[in-house]
């Protein structure tokens, strides 16, 4: 285990987690007013109405894919009768479709952001950085999915996934990660950058998905404390 590897796969993920959690707490405490989607629909809605739902729905699939791929160990899957081959066929089909849809949608969104004057004017440097990292993360993700076309014994199921689960239980498995192919490493690193950016960019709006709306009464009353 080289110094560089332990920096990348032991130190960096924990720094990422600390910044992510700490950043969210800071942002929530000190910037509730800035916590918003900062929608640009008022300026332009034709492109947005196609690209934004496509992006978000596809992203939801991508997230589900990441959870299944990273959190559920291979032998658990095999225990319920999902062979490695069947898993990869599924992962490639659904992950490929969702990934490509996300990539197309983010492309459309960036195109819209750049070409529609008012939308571009409302784009901050923060947004630009975020979009660049997000697009790279999606692009590298799609490439790794396609590269996983040939199921092999050294896919992410035996490398990235055990390392990721190890990080979560405070026993990061650097050796497993070291065997992963370069593509996966790049995708993982970009992912960490994205997670670091998350609390400080407009991405935070994802955490306010208003599921409570389904359960609250329609009319909200408030009374000043007496």
């Amino acid at each position: 285990m080289s110094w560089g590897e332990s920096m990348l796969w032991i130190v960096a993920p924990y720094i990422t987690i600390v910044i992510f959690v700490g950043g969210l707490i800071w942002r929530y405490r000190y910037d509730k007013f800035g916590w918003t989607t900062r929608s640009s629909q008022l300026y332009e809605s034709r492109l947005l109405r196609v690209a934004s739902p496509l992006f978000h729905y596809a992203l939801l699939f991508v997230i589900v894919g990441h959870i299944t791929g990273l959190l559920i160990p291979r032998n658990w899957m095999e225990a319920i009768g999902v062979s490695n081959h069947a898993y990869h066929v599924n992962a490639l089909t659904w992950g490929g479709i969702a990934g490509l849809a996300t990539l197309v949608a983010v492309g459309l969104l960036i195109y819209r952001r750049r070409t529609v004057g008012p939308v571009f004017l409302a784009t901050t440097n923060n947004d630009k950085t975020m979009y660049a990292v997000l697009a790279l993360a999606i692009l590298s993700g799609v490439v790794t999915t396609v590269a996983g076309f040939v199921p092999s014994e050294v896919s992410y199921r035996t490398t990235v996934a055990p390392w990721f689960r190890g990080v979560l239980i405070l026993q990061p498995d650097v050796t497993a990660m070291a065997h992963a192919s370069g593509l996966y490493k790049v995708h993982t690193l970009i992912g960490m950058v994205l997670i670091v950016l998350f609390p400080f960019s407009r991405l935070v709006h994802a955490l306010s998905a208003p599921l409570g709306y389904l359960f609250r009464p329609y009319i909200v009353y408030r009374r000043r404390p007496r």
Binding site: F33, S208, P210, V220, R224
Partner: peptide, 23 residues
């Protein structure tokens, strides 16, 4: 988000700017 509310005391309808998420 439940950011909009009606005040019980005087019925004024307001937006809680801290809870509005711009949906």
């Amino acid at each position: 988000s439940g950011a909009l509310y009606k005040r019980e005391e005087d019925g004024i309808v307001l937006v809680d700017q801290d809870r509005c998420r711009g949906w």
